[in-house]
Amino acid sequence: MYDEAGHRPGRATRRAVLGTIASVAAAGIAGGCARDRPGRGDGDDRAGAGAGPVSRAGGSGHTFERLSAPDRTLVRAADGGTLATFTDGARTAVLTGPTRTFSEPRTTTATVTTDVWVRVLPHEWQRGMERTAWFKGWFTRTLGDTSPDVFAVAFEYSSAGAPDKHDAAGVRYAGTAHYGPRDRGVSDPLDFGYHSERSDFYDYLGIPWTFPDGTRARPEKARYGDVDCSGFQRLVWGYRMGIPLRGTNTEGAGLPRRAFAIAAHGPGRLLIPVTGEAPTDLSILQPGDLVFFSIIKERPKLIDHCGMYLGLDDRGRPRFYSSRSAANGPTMGDLSGHSLLDGTDFYARGFRAARRL
């Protein structure tokens, strides 16, 4: 655990934090609490806003605070550390829990160590929901939950190798994913056209899918076990985590098919709009946010790639996770461009937008 300047706190501070964890657990809410840190690592609890109204949950030792830009509710422990963040209009919940490290040695030496756990709320968050009965029960259960969250589920498809998992019907719902079949006209494996796009979540699963509008999609046999960039996000957030899916790129309820449509009118909150330029202020981001890119130089406003923001890596750089052609599947690695949002490298130059589902 580190302070806002990135330094490890002294012994007295660490004792105080451990005491807060004990008091929260005694109140029936298991789990740790994190000090506020810059938003590129764990979600900036202060970015773009002064302190809003604070309400206290009787007997639990924690408080609820309102912040803006975007409008959101923070749950704070007795010492002021952040336990959770809920954004108005979004189902993404960011909670504090045991520290984990994500790595992918095949494609990068960088690692991401985080105490952030990303969960999906049963409803879009709205101001005042902390006073509802469903939330009190959900929060008590979920803060101490160590079952797979969004990050853990996403890494169940790592191109570096992930074990297969099958459901009761024999469908392989997890295990190493690839990007898609090779384009025989391209010989360089680092070329973005080396593997063709068009692999959705149902191609990976190898099963037909009926969307809410009645549209029936059938998987291509040649794409079994494959997901392109947006197909991967739909596999994780939709098929696995329960956010509704739709089969088109038009406006409507649910997560649309392509990256440009998710950025423009997907569910949740648009945090960074497309302007044709790379954003320079990343403080609004929190782990789990979807990030979008324009990787065709001649069309700087065309969104043609998306990924999931992981937070700061071990070098203090903002790193994302996406299904990419060069790695032939989901990766946090650096083949054909570093998986970073800052600096002057390929993806940093192409970074255009962000959305919180």
Rank of each mutant, 00 (worst) to 15 (best):
D203N: 04
W209P: 01
K221F: 04
D42I: 12
L357W: 14
G170N: 09
F64N: 02
L285I: 06
G32L: 09
T176K: 01
A152K: 03
G252C: 04
K165Y: 09
A162G: 00
P318W: 00
H338I: 14
R355C: 12
L340W: 14
F135C: 13
A69P: 07
G247F: 07
G6S: 01
T99E: 14
R100T: 15
A26M: 07
I296Q: 11
H265C: 03
L121E: 05
E220S: 14
P212L: 04
E65F: 04
R11Y: 00
T210S: 02
K136I: 12
V227A: 02
L341H: 01
A154K: 06
T85E: 11
F64E: 01
P273T: 02
K165N: 07
M129H: 15
Q286K: 08
A47P: 10
F64S: 02
S339Q: 00
W209S: 06
D88S: 10
I29V: 14
F232M: 04
L312H: 13
Y239V: 05
D44G: 14
L310K: 08
W138C: 02
Y309H: 15
G81P: 11
T107M: 11
D313A: 09
Y347L: 05
R66F: 00
W125Q: 09
G61R: 09
R40G: 05
S158A: 10
G6C: 00
F151W: 10
S323W: 03
G137D: 12
E65K: 11
A169C: 04
D36V: 15
A27P: 02
S196A: 09
I29M: 07
A327L: 10
P219K: 08
R72C: 05
F102R: 07
A26H: 08
S60G: 10
D71C: 12
L74N: 06
L83N: 15
L341F: 04
G266C: 09
A78G: 15
G242M: 00
S336D: 15
L143H: 15
G343S: 10
F293C: 07
R355I: 13
R56A: 10
Y194F: 10
A133C: 08
F155Y: 09
G28M: 05
G350W: 10
M308H: 11
F292K: 06
V17M: 08
T96G: 11
F201R: 04
S147L: 05
R131E: 15
G193S: 11
F192D: 13
R141E: 12
Q286E: 08
D44V: 04
E298L: 14
H305W: 03
I303A: 09
F346G: 04
R198M: 14
T82L: 11
F320D: 02
D167I: 02
